[in-house]
Design a binder for these strands. Structure first.
Length: 268
DNA sequence: AAGCCTTTGAAGCCC
DNA sequence: GGGCTTCAAAGGCTT
């Protein structure tokens, strides 16, 4: 089941041409089969080969099988979703799609919506029965809320910059002997802007494919699903005084500068 | 333990 | 439609 789902999604992507004008930096893209070519001398694995290899990446098939017998839970998938295991232009798409955490969750299989009470089912009549029905409704609502809370969250697909960060983070950590993410992200932000349009376009294209795959896997999913789920201490930090330039992004927004190309003085 | 910091981009929300 | 907000990742730091 898992294999079929992934395989069909993969096939869909392989045969969906990018929409004309899609992406922020539309660049002439090589055909996907060329873009996915592994480095010389490295045997290219198809999805089928991947799952049937004598030494496959263990995660996908194993986890999907386990989930058949286990109660639903959110596994720690942080290690699986790594674009850094192959440098860009080598095996990025393959690695990413095979190891996408969304693929591991096993709970949101397209075409299998959750059971919804049929509208024809009506509450029983009679006062006592009605009270009992109310209690049932309440407990049902509670258990529904509990189930909702336990349900593994489907994360947003990563955008181009996030994919870039994921790949380059280790390199920056090694170069700068930094560990603090906030500092690393500042460096990565500057490096991102230093990239050429062509270099950035690789990540925009990859992000577009990530979104497309996400849509195929979770047709009903919306970013709305996770909206407001993260609790924030306060919004005061986000509404600093006008004298504080804030982040480059906010600063550019404040002064009406181009987010893609302009650097504002205070944030340089 | 939970949230903040810090980045960019995508998408939701609100007017 | 424009502007603002939230969330994706990451890990040390703060509350």
């Amino acid at each position: 089941m898992y294999k079929e789902t992934v395989y069909s999604a993969f096939n869909l992507l392989m045969h969906y041409p990018p929409p004309s004008g899609a992406g922020q930096h539309p660049q002439p893209q090589p055909p996907l089969h060329k873009a996915n070519q592994p480095p010389h001398g490295v045997p290219q694995l198809s999805l089928y080969d991947h799952f049937n290899s004598p030494h496959p990446t263990p995660a996908p098939a194993d986890i999907s099988q386990k989930q058949v017998h286990r109660p639903l839970q959110t596994p720690d998938l942080s290690g699986f979703y790594s674009l850094t295991s192959g440098s860009m232009g080598q095996l990025p798409h393959t690695v990413s799609w095979f190891t996408h955490p969304s693929l591991m969750l096993g709970s949101s299989v397209p075409g299998h919506p959750a059971a919804i009470p049929h509208p024809a089912i009506v509450p029983p009549s009679g006062k006592q029965e009605l009270q009992s029905f109310d209690r049932n409704l309440k407990t049902q609502a509670e258990s529904k809320a509990e189930k909702e809370a336990k349900k593994p969250t489907i994360k947003k697909p990563l955008n181009a910059f996030m994919l870039y960060m994921k790949e380059m983070r280790a390199k920056v950590i090694a170069e700068c002997t930094l560990k603090e993410s906030a500092a690393i992200n500042q460096i990565l932000g500057r490096r991102w802007h230093a990239l050429s349009r062509e270099e950035q376009a690789k990540y925009y294209e990859l992000a577009r494919k990530e979104r497309q795959l996400h849509m195929q896997l979770y047709p009903g999913w919306s970013a709305r699903d996770n909206y407001g789920k993260k609790k924030r201490r306060s919004r005061e930090k986000h509404q600093e005084s006008t004298t504080d330039p804030g982040s480059p992004k906010k600063c550019r927004a404040r002064f009406g500068l181009n987010q893609q190309t302009d650097w504002c003085g205070p944030c340089r």
